[in-house]
């Protein structure tokens, strides 16, 4: 009896210790985000106060408007949305059909090609960056959105891998039954595979959204004209625009840029987790 009680006591103690650590680390993770929000709402004079205030005296919601009108935000928002949307469409179309081939159709050379596909995931993009830039330059596509969009229509290795893993979980008997009923390969793909793997397609859509929306190096290399910038590129130039950095406006702008990703994450968390777990990608 005594033994049992002391054991229970120890378990409770360990459990509370676990909670304390998780709480503390969560708070450490949240402080920067809180600091971002708090700074964004501060008056100009309040930003450079020391010691800093955690909660601004009079929250300045007007900062968001100021930050967004200082740069042609609408223009950049449209640019980024166009690139991101086109990227999502391209990734979904190409990756889903390529993955169908790898998951469902038997052919000589399939396994070798799949190995090549997997190994391309390990190739650093810097090795291809310069020749691809030269190619787009020859095509006169620099300072357009094409270099950021077109490559996505050729299927991304990570997405193909992710979708293939999902397709493999669908019983092949479904395909066979459909084939006996006279369904073509295209019919099997569009009427059986696609409807059954909607969650996986959502995961692909979300990840391609996140990557494209947040991409920095691509736009940095290809876009120059002031009216063609993306949000991340505009943000990175924000620092130089004021003499002394207006951190409140900068943080407000950063929050607005991050907002679609936050919203997407809160409503579609399931798909994020699924994508991360299946591919080992961190998003």
């Amino acid at each position: 009896m005594y033994l049992l009680r002391s054991r229970r006591k120890r378990e409770v103690l360990i459990k509370s210790f676990v909670y304390v650590i998780l709480m503390v680390t969560s708070i450490i993770i949240l402080i920067p985000i809180f600091w971002m929000l708090s700074t964004a709402l501060k008056e100009d004079s309040e930003v450079y106060l020391f010691p800093p205030e955690w909660i601004p005296q009079k929250p300045q919601f007007g900062n968001f408007k100021r930050a967004l009108t200082f740069i042609p935000f609408g223009r950049y928002f449209t640019n980024t949305s166009v690139i991101t949307f086109a990227t999502m469409v391209g990734s979904l179309l190409s990756s889903s059909i390529v993955a169908y081939g790898f998951a469902r159709l038997r052919a000589r050379g399939r396994d070798i090609l799949f190995m090549i596909l997997l190994s391309t995931m390990m190739i650093p993009s810097q090795i291809t960056m310069i020749p691809v830039f030269v190619l787009f330059k020859l095509l006169n596509w620099t300072d357009t959105f094409k270099p950021l969009i077109i490559p996505n229509f050729f299927g991304g290795a990570f997405f193909i891998f992710l979708l293939r893993q999902f397709y493999m979980t669908i019983p092949i008997e479904l395909d066979d039954a459909a084939k006996i009923d006279g369904c073509s390969y295209l019919g099997i793909f569009s009427r059986i595979i696609l409807p059954l793997t909607k969650p996986a397609l959502a995961t692909v859509a979300i990840f391609s959204f996140m990557w494209s929306w947040n991409d920095f190096m691509g736009p940095l290399i290809y876009l120059n004209s002031r009216d063609k910038l993306t949000l991340t590129l505009a943000l990175s130039r924000f620092t130089g625009m004021y003499g002394m950095t207006a951190w409140n406006l900068l943080m407000a702008a950063s929050l607005v840029v991050a907002l679609p990703c936050f919203v997407l994450f809160f409503f579609a968390q399931r798909y994020f987790i699924q994508g991360i777990v299946v591919t080992g990608l961190k998003g």
């Binding site: 991340t232 590129l233 990175s236 991050a258 936050f262 998003g283």
Partner: peptide
């Protein structure tokens, strides 16, 4: 996971 959602540039500025 929340920090991983924010873009590289916004994180850098923050």
């Amino acid at each position: 996971y929340m920090p991983s959602v924010i873009s590289g540039v916004a994180v850098a500025l923050l």
